[in-house]
């Protein structure tokens, strides 16, 4: 079990700050949602937590250890990433791509063995990707590739998982299926999960806690009911009076109306 933490972190590309003085954490068993408008820096947070970029200032701690002093292979045994719309080499099969998740667990002179193959097979069964196993990845749809990436991160067997828009390419059936799986793993295996989510309704349904980032800072933080409110959504997204209560589970739900269909609540 490991905790992910950012302490007063400023992130940027070429000294142009994208995020300033960000502090956040994700604890074991907790699913934290990262929400915010386009270009607010959700993916940048994920790149920083997986040490693809280094912070300009501040500290990033993975299980209490500074990410700067953690060797890359060790880090990849602790933190797995599901990238957004990844480019995959067309000549590999889906099974080979999933098996690459074992890479951080293998030394330079080692190769995957029967145990690693079994782990990959199990992950493909869990994510419903077994029928794709021997297909080349250039033949797969965006949604199928997204599921493969989830399978790969399971194969990586990390204690923390970062997801960048894990449901962006999925139909609603697959969205619920994949997020249910992530939710279950997070609770059962006490994983620390941080997911950048574009869809506010999915974020409200699945996350324990939400971090709303806007204009280089954390604008709001708390339970979905605390973060997704009429006031905050208007401040950040400009959409007025669109938060309702889910009829079944009472969680906040965003429902949009076109201007020509505005009703009394929105005009109020």
């Amino acid at each position: 079990m490991i905790k992910l933490e950012m302490q007063g972190v400023t992130l940027g590309y070429n000294r142009h700050p994208v995020l300033e003085d960000i502090s956040l954490r994700a604890s074991p068993g907790e699913l934290v949602g990262l929400i915010g408008p386009n270009g607010s820096g959700k993916s940048t947070v994920i790149k920083a937590l997986s040490h693809v970029i280094s912070p300009v200032s501040g500290r990033i701690l993975i299980g209490g250890r500074d990410i700067k002093s953690t060797p890359r292979r060790e880090l990849a045994c602790q933190v797995g990433v599901v990238p957004q719309m990844p480019l995959l080499p067309s000549t590999f099969t889906a099974f080979e791509i999933v098996l690459m998740g074992r890479n951080p667990h293998l030394g330079l002179f080692q190769s995957e063995g029967p145990r690693d193959w079994a782990i990959a097979r199990e992950a493909m069964e869990k994510t419903g990707t077994t029928p794709l196993a021997n297909r080349r990845v250039n033949e797969l749809s965006g949604g199928e590739i997204q599921c493969l990436m989830i399978a790969r991160v399971l194969v990586q067997e990390t204690k923390a998982i970062l997801l960048d828009e894990p449901t962006a390419n999925l139909d609603i059936g697959r969205q619920v299926e994949i997020l249910d799986l992530i939710r279950r793993l997070c609770t059962e295996k006490k994983l620390s999960v941080l997911a950048a989510v574009h869809d506010l309704n999915l974020a409200a349904q699945y996350c324990d806690r939400l971090l709303l980032i806007n204009e280089r800072r954390i604008h709001a933080e708390g339970t979905p009911a605390e973060v997704i409110t009429d006031r905050i959504i208007k401040e950040v997204y400009g959409a007025e009076n669109c938060v309702y209560t889910h009829p079944v589970n009472g969680l906040p739900t965003v429902i949009l109306s076109a201007a020509r269909h505005k009703t009394s609540k929105e005009k109020a």
Binding site: V52, P71, C77, G80, P89, E96, G101, N103
Partner: peptide, 16 residues
């Protein structure tokens, strides 16, 4: 092989 993914994914899979 892992480098055949993009460099970012390779880093996230533990490749220096």
């Amino acid at each position: 092989n892992v480098m055949q993914l993009d460099e970012e994914q390779a880093q996230q899979l533990g490749v220096n």
